[in-house]
């Protein structure tokens, strides 16, 4: 069984789904947090660092698109994957426009989801590396000795 290390946040109003999917992802080595609403997700994202956030579109309270927008507002570096049963072309485009990493339809093949998480993680790592590299460069430039 292939495993990935990383930290993901699952956002879905269907608790049963959260339960099963998080258990599955955990068996593949991921650390999984869950949130049952958009508000909940925003709180979680505040104090934890996730490699990827997986968001459903249709949720009571603030919906998936709004959650995506607010998450991106807070931290543009967040890697967000939409996973929904309510797929339509228009919503997919909306989500991608708002900076979603990917748009997956329920039910999803776990290996596909894992791949996407992995991709997201790598992308995030690259960004982090680039950021720290930029920082180092900056330091090197300002403090030329």
């Amino acid at each position: 069984m292939n495993t990935i290390e990383g930290k993901v946040l699952l956002v879905d109003d269907e608790e049963k789904f959260l339960e099963v999917l998080s258990e599955r992802l955990e068996t593949h080595g991921l650390k999984v947090s869950t949130a049952t609403s958009g508000e909940d997700a925003l709180d979680r994202a505040e104090d934890q660092n996730f490699d990827a956030i997986i968001v459903d579109l249709a949720m009571p309270g603030i919906d998936g698109i709004e959650t995506l927008r607010r998450l991106k507002e807070k931290n543009g570096d967040l890697e967000i994957i939409i996973l929904t049963g309510h797929a339509s072309v228009k919503k997919g485009i909306d989500a991608m426009k708002l900076g979603a990493e990917d748009f997956l339809e329920k039910p999803v093949d776990l290996s596909v989801l894992l791949d996407k998480i992995n991709e997201a993680k790598h992308k995030r790592m690259l960004i982090m590396e680039k950021k720290s590299l930029d920082k180092v460069k900056k330091i090197l430039k300002t403090k030329a000795w």
Binding site: M1, F17, T27, G85, P107, L110
Partner: peptide
């Protein structure tokens, strides 16, 4: 209807996937 159905199918999917994972372990 399709939305709801897909949500439930997702649960079945993950549950059966989990079963497979568990069996693998």
């Amino acid at each position: 209807y399709t939305h709801e159905l897909k949500n439930h199918l997702a649960i079945i999917n993950e549950s059966s996937g989990l079963m497979a994972d568990l069996l693998g372990m």
